[in-house]
Simulated assay, not measured.
Amino acid sequence: MAAVGARHDDTPPGDRAVLAAAGIEKTYRRGVWPARRWVRVLQGVDLALAPGEVVGLVGENGSGKSTLMKVLVGALSADAGTVTRRGRLGYCPQEPVVYERLTCDEHFELFGHAYGLTDQAERRARRELYEALGFERYAATRTDRLSGGTLSKLNLGLALLADPEVLLLDEPYAGFDFDTYLRFWELVGERRQAGRSVLIISHFVTDEERFDRIIELRDGRAVPR
């Protein structure tokens, strides 16, 4: 298995960053009138990823992890702050966004067209992902007939399809068995060695040695752990 070794330098990536967020703020309106209130979820988050860096983002439920991830990929606008992206992003949301009547193969074809891949490049990447994640036997299966674990594999595979420079994963191994969990870290290790960056959201981190840095969202801010 390709290991993801820890770095000895905890200095923020700065100008080398392939993804950088500065001063991100986000407030939500909760409840109904007259009990309506405003809740500040993100209160000036700063975050940066260097090439080839694997970073974990942890925090309690409701701390704003998924909100921050959506801001980073552009799926949600921030109230304040800036996000700078360099290169292609791959995004694996916590809840898979799939079409129930399409097969796994058809999803890869659809996403390949969206990414602007040639048919040959898409088919090659698809074969490699099926093999790496071990679900090629479900290639012709509709997604409404997949188990939760296999659906998670497809979700991850679609994020990896275009070989993005930055991979953003929200609870990516939920539903994985142990063998798939190890396969996942092999893929992460290969990406790190290729100079690709990975940001992983998780409620908790058990294998801290696999990460270069771990950042905690606490009181609306990102702090090193």
Results as ranks from 00 to 15, higher is better:
R124V: 14
C104K: 04
A50L: 12
G220K: 11
D163C: 07
I24S: 00
Q120I: 08
A121Q: 07
L160H: 09
L76S: 00
E109C: 01
G112C: 05
E136G: 06
E128S: 13
F111L: 12
G62E: 01
A139T: 02
A48H: 03
L167G: 07
R192E: 13
E95M: 09
Q193L: 15
P172Q: 06
E100G: 11
V58F: 05
G81V: 01
A48W: 08
V4M: 14
V73G: 02
L151T: 07
H107M: 01
A222R: 09
E100A: 14
G148S: 09
E128M: 07
L151K: 11
G31W: 12
A132H: 04
A78C: 06
D105A: 12
R142N: 11
R213E: 03
L110C: 10
E171Y: 12
D105I: 01
Q94D: 15
D144H: 13
A121L: 10
T82L: 01
S197I: 09
I215P: 10
V97E: 08
G23E: 08
R7F: 04
S66I: 02
F178L: 09
N61C: 01
A48Q: 09
D119I: 04
G90Q: 13
G14K: 11
R36E: 15
A194L: 08
T11H: 06
A78S: 13
Q120W: 02
T180G: 14
L199K: 09
T103L: 01
H113A: 10
V188Q: 06
I215S: 12
E171T: 06
A162C: 05
T11M: 05
E208A: 14
V4L: 04
E216K: 09
L199Y: 05
R142F: 00
L47H: 03
P164R: 03
W33R: 14
E209H: 11
V58I: 15
F204N: 15
S152L: 09
V39T: 10
D15E: 15
G31I: 04
R101E: 15
I201V: 15
A114I: 14
A75L: 15
R127V: 04
T118A: 10
E122L: 04
P96Q: 12
L49E: 14
H113E: 07
R221A: 07
R85H: 02
S63K: 03
D105Q: 12
F111P: 00
F178Y: 11
R29Y: 14
E95L: 10
Y28E: 01
S152C: 05
H8S: 15
V4F: 02
R126W: 05
V98W: 12
Y115I: 05
T118C: 07
A35W: 12
F211V: 12
A125K: 03
S202T: 13
E100T: 08
D177E: 08
R16G: 13
L42S: 02
T103E: 02
F211T: 06
A194Y: 06
Y91G: 11
E208N: 00
V198R: 03
R127I: 02
I215T: 06
G134D: 09
R210C: 09
D170L: 08
H203N: 08
A20S: 15
E95G: 00
L168Q: 13
K65R: 04
E131K: 13
P164I: 01
